[in-house]
Design a protein around this nucleic acid. Structure first.
Lengths: 201, 201
DNA sequence: GTCTATAGCCGGATAGAC
DNA sequence: GTCTATCCGGCTATAGAC
């Protein structure tokens, strides 16, 4: 395949933070162009239209992540260790990374079929494959699919809610620390909240 | 305060599903007007501009929900029952309701301070107040704020991911049933996933 | 491959008749 | 309070010179 030019990559990398912050419709071709240092007309030498530029940018952002998957989730260590690694990987890859997290957030809201397929192929399917066996043997009776979604949601929502959570009374900044979030989630998933047992039959 | 006219309410109710589906920038004043059955110019007899219409629509959508809060979360029953009621309330109010869920999703992505404040005042703060005591006494050592976010995230993400989850291998439609999701979440929060204990000290 | 200039369209908002 | 008509700005995309 033909090697991508340097400008091509520069465009993708300039576009990603803009799409993340303002959404597809909130970003003008002029905005991307000026972030790169060229004019809007020049963009059309590299992409046929805005939609394709957006799609290639998403692909560029998420395809890179796949490579790190299998290596960082190698099947070693205790169940507890592997769970911790999985959670930490999500936090570092998609939670604590404002750009990737916002892109994911906006894509799920728009729910465009083509982009959903892209995300499943590059992120969620490989991820699910890597943890399915682990999840299946660990979870006592819990459906693997549901549990997969639960763990991801547990991670992502802490970061998605960060602009809002700060406004709830009693908030303290330490709750935004990735380490605190990771610890909390790991603890919760492993043991639950231990309600006072009344009739637990 | 002056009573809102019938058309005023009709406009809000016509606008909400549009904003939910296409986002603020994805909806034109002409779109809202034609959904109501009037012209765009007529909208300006009721709202000064698009931004205010949007804000009033959000307020209308979420303010209604507050009233149901305290009644449905009355402080009766066992801890387990109250947890179940809380989870079920979120699922029925914001998860299974495509419009409210999508609105929330898009607002959190945009993170506009004024709208964040609106959501906190009308939804999250009252909700947190209602469950804080309950959460505090139940959770052994877990931070109430973090746990509050965890429970909400656990609920919401199942629904936010629904357009994407269908594409992951091994998906079955029953996983989308609100009852299944509720059961799964309640079970997970209470007991965790029960990893093989190795050194749990 | 980038520029300037511009076509063509769409969207928010206003003016003024009814 | 709603209409028609219209202004104006911003946007995607193209044409053509360099």
């Amino acid at each position: 395949m033909p090697r991508q030019s340097k400008t091509y990559i520069k465009i993708l990398e300039a576009a990603l933070p803009l799409f993340a912050a303002y959404g597809y419709k909130g970003v003008a071709m002029r905005d991307i162009a000026s972030a790169v240092g060229i004019t809007a007309a020049a963009l059309y030498n590299h992409f046929p239209n805005k939609e394709q530029l957006h799609l290639k940018a998403l692909e560029y952002a998420f395809a890179q992540k796949v490579e790190n998957l299998s290596t960082s989730l190698a099947e070693t260590g205790s169940a507890k260790e592997r769970l911790s690694r999985f959670i930490l990987f999500w936090i570092e890859s998609f939670g604590d990374n404002v750009i990737l997290r916002s892109l994911l957030q906006r894509e799920m809201a728009d729910a465009d079929p083509i982009r959903m397929k892209l995300l499943v192929e590059h992120v969620f399917q490989p991820m699910f494959n890597d943890v399915e066996v682990f999840i299946r043997q660990s979870a006592n009776g819990l459906n693997p699919h549901l549990l997969f979604v639960s763990i991801i949601g547990l991670v992502m929502y802490h970061f998605e809610m960060s602009p809002l959570r700060k406004l709830i009374k009693g908030y303290s900044p330490e709750q935004d620390e990735p380490e605190q979030v990771a610890k909390h989630i790991t603890e919760l998933i492993q043991h639950g909240i231990a309600l006072q047992p009344e009739n637990d039959g």
